[in-house]
C-alpha cells in the first residue's frame, strides 16, 4: 500500500523553478533517503510533501487522502486530517523554547487529537524512553544539546502516530559527535517498520538504513533505486559524479 504518492509535482519561487515534474511513491514501511547537491530541491520537495509549502502543479496523495490534485488543493478539513498523518523533523529541531520537554511532546496530542492529558503523558514518557531521553522530561530545550533536542523533536513528531515521518537533514545542524545518537534512534525506527523519507548528506547512514535512495538534481528526480545500487552502481552520470565527489572529498 502506498502511504505517499507524488505525481508530476512542480513548484517555482518567483521565476525560479525549483521542482520539475517529480513523481515517486513510498510504500508502507519503506525508508527513502533523498540525496543530491544543495539547491537541487530536496528540502522543497519534503516541505511540499509535509504541506509546509504549496506546490504549483501535480498531485500528492498522503495516507489515502488526496491533498492536491493537478495543482488544486483539497478543502480545509481534508488538509487538516492529512497533516496529522505525517510528522516532520526539522534541521533546526524547532522545539518550542518556552515549554518543558514533556509539554513539547504532549501539546499536539492533547490540543489537536484531544487525547486525555494523562494518557498523553504516559505515551510521551514511553517515547522519551525510546529516544534515551527519559531523564530530561522536565528540562527546557535550552538545557539540552543539539542531539538531545533533535531526539525530543522526533518523539514530538511520533506522539501524533503519523503514518509517515519526514526528516529534513536531521543531523546537519549537529556537531559530528552528536549525530550518532540521532542516527541510532532513526535506525531503531526503521527496524520497527516506520515509514520515513529522509533528506540527508550522511551517505553511510543512507546506505545502511534506506531501502531506496532518490537522487535529485536541478529540481528533478535523476535516479530512484535500491540504496546499494544507487551508491555503488549508479546508472546516471550526474549521480556518479556526485557520489564520486563525496568520496574524494575526504
Amino acid at each position: 500500500m502506498d502511504i505517499l504518492s507524488i505525481n508530476n509535482l512542480s513548484k517555482s519561487f518567483r521565476q525560479q523553478q525549483v521542482l520539475r515534474d517529480i513523481s515517486f511513491t513510498v510504500k508502507q514501511g519503506e525508508v527513502i533517503a533523498v540525496i543530491g547537491p544543495s539547491g537541487s530541491g530536496k528540502t522543497t520537495l519534503l516541505r511540499c510533501a509535509a504541506m509546509l509549502e504549496n506546490a504549483d502543479g501535480g498531485s500528492i496523495d498522503l495516507g489515502g487522502i488526496s491533498v492536491v490534485e493537478s495543482g488544486k488543493y483539497a478543502d480545509k478539513a481534508s488538509l487538516k486530517s492529512a497533516r496529522t498523518k505525517c510528522g516532520m523533523v526539522f534541521q533546526n529541531f524547532n522545539l518550542f523554547p518556552h515549554m518543558l520537554v514533556l509539554d513539547n511532546i504532549i501539546d499536539a496530542p492533547v490540543h489537536v487529537l484531544g487525547i486525555p492529558r494523562q494518557e498523553a503523558v504516559r505515551e510521551a514518557l514511553a517515547l522519551l524512553g525510546k529516544m534515551e531521553m527519559q531523564e530530561y522530561v522536565n528540562a527546557y530545550p535550552c538545557e539540552l544539546s543539539g542531539g538531545q533536542q533533535q531526539r525530543v523533536a522526533i518523539a514530538r513528531a511520533l506522539a501524533l502516530h503519523p503514518e509517515i515521518l519526514f526528516f529534513d537533514e536531521p543531523t546537519s545542524a549537529l556537531d559530528p559527535e552528536l549525530t550518532n545518537g540521532v542516527l541510532r534512534v532513526i535506525r531503531a525506527l526503521a527496524e520497527e517498520d516506520m515509514t520515513m523519507v529522509i533528506v540527508t548528506h550522511e551517505m553511510d547512514f543512507a546506505e545502511k538504513v534506506a531501502d531506496r535512495i532518490i537522487f535529485m538534481a536541478d529540481g528533478m528526480v535523476v535516479e530512484d533505486g535500491p540504496a546499494a545500487e544507487v551508491i555503488h552502481n549508479p546508472a546516471n552520470e550526474r549521480t556518479k559524479a556526485f557520489i564520486a565527489g563525496l568520496k574524494s572529498g575526504f
Binding site: A50, M51, L52, K80, R83, T84, C86, G87, M88, F90, N92, N94, L95, F96, D107, A108, H111, V112, L113, R156, A157, L160
Partner: peptide
Amino acid sequence: VDRGQMEAGRSLGFSYLQ
C-alpha cells in the same frame, strides 16, 4: 519569533490560530 516555530506548529496539526 523564528519562522520555524510556526512551521513546527503547523506540522503538528495545529491550526494557524492555535
